[in-house]
């Protein structure tokens, strides 16, 4: 029984991580129809910022990571994505792929490709007991952070003026502009928020793995992408759900699969993804306004 709860908590914790990652991706896709591969680099560079600031007080480290992620997000928007605002989706996809690789290779050039250890908030790695079940403190923190950020984001989108503008822009960008919604502001805010989410994920991952390496962000976002696709591209609840399912699913599979198949669990997850897409190509929670009117 305890084992079962541990597995469930692990699944929810990992699911939350992927949900947050997918949300960051979904925010940008919503307003710009851009799949931002470079989101992975936001996560990676936030982690390297933590590394660079290690030894400083924790709030300073976290603030640094957030600042770097947000600034980098805004910079990539301004330099690489704004000129391509009206390009077709494939061009946007290629450009984000190129930006991602550029940042990654630049990072490797500067810091090398070997992984580096980082002991960040080691206290969170402790075991704790909740309702008689032994759990890792980090798992609980991850779930709480996930819920808090999800709620905060939802509040922002539903209750603020800017959030309303973003939701409108995500559904019908041009009509929003006709009504006076400032395109540049909305997109910049979306990127900034995605930076914030990336920094949060980065901190959690660094605590969990204790390792910083140039590929870390990309590995996360590849799986998160697939999550947004099954959740429904363009739909934020869909992105969160899809990311969560993919993350939680891989943990559950790991627990359920026989030992010799466990290494293939990612393959199984993707097969499940393909199966879902077969029956619901528009995703689990499809976004409105995505289908073109004839």
């Amino acid at each position: 029984m305890e084992r079962l709860v541990q597995i469930v908590v692990d699944a929810v914790s990992v699911g939350s991580l992927y949900a947050l990652t997918a949300l960051g991706i979904g925010l940008i896709f919503g307003v710009m129809r851009l799949i931002n591969f470079a989101h992975g680099e936001l996560i990676t560079l936030a982690a390297y910022t933590l590394l660079a600031l290690s030894g400083m007080p924790v709030p300073v480290m976290i603030f640094g990571a957030v600042a770097v992620a947000v600034l980098l997000a805004l910079l990539t928007e301004r330099a690489a994505f704004r000129p391509l605002r009206n390009a077709d989706p494939t061009t946007l996809l290629i450009s984000s792929f190129a930006v991602s690789f550029f940042l990654q290779k630049l990072l490797i050039l500067v810091v090398g490709s070997r992984l580096k250890g980082l002991d960040f908030l080691p206290a969170l790695g402790r075991q704790t007991e909740l309702f008689g079940v032994r759990l890792q403190l980090l798992q609980i923190v991850t779930i709480v952070v996930g819920i808090v950020l999800l709620v905060a984001l939802t509040w922002f989108l539903k209750a603020t003026r800017l959030g309303l503008h973003m939701r409108a822009a995500a559904e019908d960008f041009r009509m929003a502009r006709v009504l006076g919604v400032r395109a540049n502001n909305v997109i910049a805010v979306a990127f900034a928020l995605s930076g914030l989410l990336a920094a949060a994920v980065s901190c959690l991952i660094v605590v969990q793995t204790g390792v910083v390496q140039p590929r870390m962000g990309l590995q996360l976002v590849i799986i998160a992408f697939v999550g947004t696709v099954i959740g429904g591209l363009g739909s934020l609840p869909g992105a969160a759900l899809g990311g969560f399912l993919v993350g939680a699913g891989s943990i559950l599979l790991q627990a359920l699969l026989p030992p010799d198949l466990r290494a293939f669990r990612e393959a199984f997850v993707f097969v499940a993804v393909v199966a879902i897409l077969l029956f619901r190509p528009q995703g689990l929670i499809p976004a409105r306004g995505l289908r073109e009117r004839i």
Binding site: L164, H165, R167, A168, E171, A176, V178, L179, G180
Partner: peptide, 18 residues
């Protein structure tokens, strides 16, 4: 071009964006 996912009130609110 009304915003289908937003409420009627939110649609009206958007009219007053400026």
């Amino acid at each position: 071009h009304i915003f289908a996912a937003l409420t009627v009130r939110e649609n009206l609110l958007l009219g007053a964006t400026v």
